[in-house]
């Protein structure tokens, strides 16, 4: 089972379509691999370390990946959002109605 992560964050598959191609490719690769380190990302995409790092940081900042804690190098994992029922009102709307 994946680590317990907040369900109101993360990306939806449709978010992939609005990412710059460099970020999208890395995120798609992490989806397929499950996880990857900075070194693995740099090697796979033949990037300089600083370029790979800046892509990972951008994805992390958007909440689309997270760095899993461990003894070795940081391992980045995709942070998926929950599928949301179509047309479901947000919690915020309900609280406004009942409040």
């Amino acid at each position: 089972m994946p680590p317990d992560i907040p369900t109101d964050s993360g990306f939806r598959a449709s978010d992939l379509l609005s990412l710059p191609s460099s970020e999208r490719r890395v995120l798609q690769w992490l989806m397929r691999q499950g996880a990857g380190s900075l070194r693995e990302v740099a090697d796979h995409f033949q990037l300089m370390d600083e370029d790979a790092e800046s892509i990972l940081l951008a994805l992390e900042k958007q909440g689309y990946i997270f760095a899993a804690a461990g003894n070795g190098p940081k391992s980045y994992r995709p942070r998926f959002g929950s599928s949301r029922p179509a047309g479901a009102p947000s919690i915020d709307i309900w609280s406004k109605l009942t409040g």
């Binding site: 994946p2 369900t7 989806m31 499950g34 998926f80």
Partner: peptide, 15 residues
């Protein structure tokens, strides 16, 4: 349809 589900689980399930 009502509750949705964890999409990450679907992806990790495939792998």
């Amino acid at each position: 349809l009502r509750d949705g589900y964890d999409v990450g689980l679907l992806n990790s399930g495939f792998q």
